[in-house]
Simulated scan of single mutants.
Amino acid sequence: MKIALTGGTGFVGKALTKELIKYGHEIFILTRRNHLKNSANLSYVQWLNDGSLPEKELEGIDVFINLAGESINSGRWTEERKKKILTSRITATKEVLRICGQLRKKPSLLINASAVGYYGTSLNKTFTESSMEHGKDFLAATVQQWEAEAFKARELNIRVVCCRFGIILDKTDGALPRIALPYKLFAGGTVGSGNQWVSWIHLKDVINGIIFAINQADLEGPVNFTSPNPVSMREFGQTLGEVLHRPHWIPAPGFALKAVLGEMSLLVLEGQKVLPAALTSHGYSFQYDHLKPALLDIFK
């Protein structure tokens, strides 16, 4: 297949590109950067720069994967930063739709990044893709607008899958290295109340799940990318300490994190119990469906 990919140099994008090339697909990474060298089965296409017309190089693509957007966990959520988080996602998705509209042959599928933050936070509710309610905080509002833009691709008769990612676990990127650091320094412990839910997923299941969605023609709409077995923050920390052979003993109180992180603290102090009903009902088999084996693989 010919696959166009935005966010291809990011956390998930790099791993996904490597796996797709391994399967023999031809990948076109859309980027603002200049002078990146093409290689076998991998081409770089300019976009979102003055005068760039990526559609001229993307005729005949089969799948469009949109992972572009400002990171939500790389800085305090000031008003300026929140605006950048939202506008980066909406701008990229609008441009993806514009490109698709210009192509003579439309791609059959748009896979768009999203987040479980759509559901808002709760200690006692369980969310699946059929859950109708959504959150009212900044992250939930961002995801709602982002998905609404992506689903406009249906007007072009393009199948749309919005991947509602949970906390993606990997050794070198994402949230896990920051969570693991205190444990490595023998200072790990329960974050906040410890009762908040952590809906996690191993990076390998993110990649395998996206490839599964490409090949599963009847899978569409919002799709939760989380393990079938979410855990409490307390259990997450205890399991992490066990895997790293470190104590789980020094708590990180919620008020201190709020003081340091501001509104962004909801990423660690609040949570939601999210189950991957769409993936499992379509027959996807998780490589890592329990936390301890996932962490053992990551830190082996």
Rank of each mutant, 00 (worst) to 15 (best):
Q46M: 03
L123C: 05
F64R: 07
H35W: 09
L5Y: 15
K83P: 00
A92F: 12
A113Q: 12
E147T: 01
G174D: 05
I72Q: 11
Q46A: 13
K258E: 14
I29Q: 09
V96A: 08
K82V: 01
E242Q: 14
C100E: 15
S122E: 13
A115Q: 02
N66P: 14
R32A: 02
N157H: 07
T126S: 10
A217W: 04
E235W: 00
S39C: 09
Q102R: 14
N124F: 12
K106Q: 11
Y288S: 04
T78Y: 12
K184S: 10
Q287K: 14
P230S: 13
S227L: 09
E270W: 09
A40I: 12
L123N: 13
N195M: 02
Q102S: 15
L266M: 10
V198L: 09
V116G: 01
R33A: 06
S193L: 08
G24I: 07
Q46E: 12
A113W: 02
F212L: 06
S39P: 11
F212S: 05
I214T: 05
L156T: 05
H282L: 03
R33N: 10
Q144G: 00
L109H: 12
A40C: 01
S232V: 10
M132T: 06
P230V: 11
V223G: 01
H25W: 10
Q287S: 14
N229A: 07
L123D: 08
R159H: 06
P107N: 15
F151M: 07
L219E: 06
C100T: 15
H245T: 04
P228E: 13
T121F: 07
S39E: 15
E235H: 04
G135V: 10
G189W: 10
I201W: 08
L103C: 13
